[in-house]
Simulated assay, not measured.
Amino acid sequence: MEKYILKVEKISDNAIIPNYANKGDAGLDLYSINELILESGERGLVHTGIKIELPENTEAQIRPRSGLALKHGISLVNSPGTIDEGYRGEIGVIVINHGQEVFKVESGMKIAQMVIKPVWRVQVDEVKSLSDAQRGDRGFGSSGV
């Protein structure tokens, strides 16, 4: 199996390098470097204090943590967030409090997970029509609730 290298640069002294909590985990834990108070329904930007350089032909998907979602109603506004291969800025996580209580993000807290995935680059062709499919153009809810 080919080995892929994720390069990580700390831009804050209290940044924590992303890591896998358990063998076989898909997501690397991302950690907050700032404190943030989120009222119910409020969203905010959590800083991680890191920059990354992804392996060629990959993306990083930023996803919510299930424990924060279940226990506190904390999720990500744009989930999954996509970090493109060429981005070199700080990794930020846009969180939202769907819970009914105030939530405090603390420095050093696991705030999200980052999954590295391959990316296929496709050729885009404009056509006059598309091939038929069993589903056709039936959309939202067409296969049942």
Rank of each mutant, 00 (worst) to 15 (best):
P55V: 00
K51G: 03
I91T: 09
L68C: 05
G99T: 02
E2R: 08
E126L: 14
P18N: 14
E59Q: 10
K104N: 13
A112V: 05
K3V: 14
G144A: 05
K10M: 05
E39L: 09
V127A: 06
E2W: 15
V124S: 07
S32R: 01
G73K: 13
V115T: 04
F103A: 04
V105L: 09
E90D: 06
V119E: 02
H72R: 12
E2M: 04
Y31F: 15
H47Y: 06
K23V: 12
K23Y: 08
V127S: 11
N78K: 01
K3M: 15
I111T: 04
T58K: 13
R43Q: 09
K71E: 07
P64F: 00
G86T: 05
E42Q: 04
V95M: 07
K10F: 02
V77R: 13
I96D: 06
V119S: 07
Y87W: 03
V115K: 15
V122S: 09
G41I: 10
G73V: 11
T48R: 02
P80H: 01
N78T: 12
E9Y: 07
E42N: 14
F103T: 01
G73M: 12
N19C: 11
I5V: 13
A60K: 00
A60Y: 14
G41C: 13
M114Q: 03
I37N: 04
Y87Q: 01
P18E: 09
V102N: 15
G73C: 10
L54V: 14
D29H: 03
Y87M: 02
S143H: 10
E90H: 08
G144K: 12
L30M: 05
E106L: 09
S107N: 13
Q123R: 10
Q113M: 10
G86N: 08
L54F: 15
I116D: 05
D132K: 13
P64R: 00
N22Y: 12
G108S: 11
L70E: 09
K3A: 10
P80I: 01
I17E: 12
G89L: 06
